[in-house]
Computed example of a mutant assay.
Amino acid sequence: MKFHIFVGLLCVLPLGYASAAALERSGQSVHALFEKGNYAEVALLHVDTNISGQVQHQQNIAELGVQDFSTGNLVNNQHFIQAALKLQPHPQISVALLFDQPYFVDVDYHYSPILSGEPLPIENADIKFDSRNITALIGYQPTQHWNLVSWSL
């Protein structure tokens, strides 16, 4: 009886981690673990952004003689990588490694209009944040229609 309770707890306890995984926004899928045989995939994404606008307090800046209120491009180009590698050493056992960059931002903003031939630094912001995530999955398939999966972050 104690053995069955222990096995039941081992199956239920990892569910607490499943709700925390919902915080990731990259959309990294675990479908690689369910592919037949050995499997590998790589996804590369290049984001060519152009986010711009106008600066605040234009009246105060105009008093200095500045006429250009454009912020220019606020966000740099971004590269995003996802990869999955699945090995199946036994028909019922699978092992997968997933690589992911769930969060990233690269903002480079400098508003320095030229006044009397000299750049006048008014507003600056440099923000760069990059994260990487590697997930290891182990799957056991007791029957054709059931997969039991355990993972480690």
Score class of each variant (00 low, 15 high):
120 L>H: 12
61 I>P: 01
6 F>D: 04
138 I>F: 15
55 V>E: 03
91 P>Y: 02
72 G>N: 06
116 S>D: 15
151 W>I: 02
130 D>Y: 07
103 Y>A: 08
36 K>C: 00
54 Q>N: 13
100 D>R: 02
63 E>W: 05
49 T>A: 15
10 L>I: 09
123 E>R: 12
81 I>H: 05
71 T>L: 10
26 S>L: 03
65 G>A: 09
24 E>I: 00
62 A>G: 06
100 D>M: 05
69 F>H: 11
134 I>L: 15
56 Q>V: 08
51 I>H: 07
116 S>M: 12
32 A>V: 09
50 N>R: 12
150 S>I: 07
26 S>R: 02
52 S>Y: 10
93 I>G: 00
149 V>C: 01
142 P>Q: 06
129 F>R: 09
29 S>P: 01
118 E>C: 00
25 R>F: 04
34 F>E: 13
70 S>V: 04
94 S>E: 01
23 L>F: 13
121 P>V: 10
153 L>V: 10
58 Q>M: 11
29 S>C: 00
3 F>V: 06
84 A>K: 04
91 P>S: 07
133 N>H: 14
11 C>R: 00
56 Q>A: 14
139 G>N: 06
104 F>D: 08
140 Y>A: 05
66 V>N: 05
78 Q>D: 06
102 P>F: 08
102 P>N: 08
32 A>F: 03
25 R>S: 05
75 V>G: 00
43 A>M: 11
105 V>T: 14
65 G>M: 08
130 D>I: 05
39 Y>I: 02
70 S>L: 08
105 V>M: 13
64 L>T: 05
105 V>I: 14
82 Q>M: 07
43 A>T: 14
21 A>C: 06
46 H>V: 13
1 M>Q: 02
61 I>H: 04
8 G>T: 08
149 V>P: 01
136 A>K: 03
139 G>E: 04
144 Q>N: 09
47 V>A: 12
35 E>K: 15
70 S>Q: 14
56 Q>F: 09
8 G>L: 12
88 Q>W: 02
70 S>F: 08
58 Q>K: 13
15 L>G: 07
1 M>F: 00
97 L>V: 15
98 L>N: 06
67 Q>W: 06
67 Q>R: 15
152 S>T: 10
98 L>D: 04
62 A>H: 07
129 F>E: 09
47 V>I: 12
17 Y>N: 10
103 Y>S: 03
131 S>C: 04
43 A>W: 07
